[in-house]
């Protein structure tokens, strides 16, 4: 089924149909172009990337360092803007939204997992997981508690909920980061090299956990990696090279 996607133009009017997506599409990228300036040099990061992700997919973006993986995830995560192209997340044209609306979209629809965990050191595990819920006005305090407890249970970290992050191992911290990403009940979880700071055993455990959550919660996962050993574990792989999707 084709879904109409609109964007707000400069005159605050809805433009005509921009792209089409199927009902199963959660992410539709169309002809994304992005480059960075390094001194006098302009380095292309994405060169006309188009991509569609369906709900519930577990997808890995693979490519060499500097191939554009992180830039691609940043675009999908609405934390960076392309020079041209369009980004549609769950039927919403992201580029037509203002900063506050994008923040709301990230808060309610997207979960983030970072390579270096990015937990707040002064907050306990439970408080870290609760962080994205604090600014979600649709979630009551009692529901917040329930969601935190459920997310920590899902990642097997309930017993650490009162610990501070520096009392945990790297693998445990990444589990907490996954719980934080899931606490908001997002439709999409983006993970930028989530296993890069972990040893092989912990890397596999994290991927297993993500696969398990993908199956149980029906959350769409998109993660970047250059670890070839993990590639066989995913249902779909997107190869990116020099800012272009190869397959």
């Amino acid at each position: 089924m084709a879904l109409p996607v609109t964007r707000i133009n400069e005159n605050n009017e809805k433009d005509a149909l921009l792209v089409t997506a199927t009902a199963d599409s959660i992410v539709v990228l169309s002809s994304l172009v992005k480059s960075y300036r390094l001194g006098q040099t302009i380095v292309p990061a994405l060169r006309g990337v188009s991509l569609e992700l369906n709900r519930g997919e577990f997808t890995a973006v693979i490519g060499a360092s500097g191939s554009g993986k992180s830039t691609l995830l940043n675009m999908i995560g609405c934390i960076d803007e392309p020079e041209s192209g369009s980004i549609v997340i769950d039927g919403v044209d992201v580029l037509s939204l203002d900063d506050n609306a994008r923040s709301r979209l990230r808060n309610q629809k997207i979960g983030f997992i970072f390579q270096s965990f990015n937990l707040v050191p002064v907050l306990t595990v439970a408080e870290n997981v609760e962080l994205p819920l604090l600014i979600n006005t649709t979630v009551s305090p009692s529901e917040r508690k329930d969601r935190v407890a459920q997310a920590l249970e899902d990642v097997g970290c309930s017993k650490f909920m009162r610990n501070l992050p520096d009392q945990l191992s790297g693998g445990q911290r990444q589990r907490v980061a996954i719980a934080r990403a899931l606490a908001g009940n997002p439709d999409l979880v983006l993970a930028d090299e989530p296993t890069a700071n972990l040893d092989s055993e912990n890397s596999h455990r994290i991927i297993d956990l993500m696969l398990d959550l993908n199956a149980r919660r029906k959350v769409t996962f998109l993660f970047s990696t250059h670890d070839e050993k993990l590639m066989g574990r995913v249902s779909r792989m997107v190869h990116i090279q020099d800012g272009v999707i190869k397959s």
């Binding site: 923040s103 983030f112 270096s116 600014i135």
Partner: peptide, 16 residues
């Protein structure tokens, strides 16, 4: 700054 970036990505607005 990384922490601020993390919080922004979690949905914290500039105002927050």
């Amino acid at each position: 700054s990384k922490e601020i970036g993390m919080m922004r990505s979690l949905g914290f607005t500039r105002r927050w």
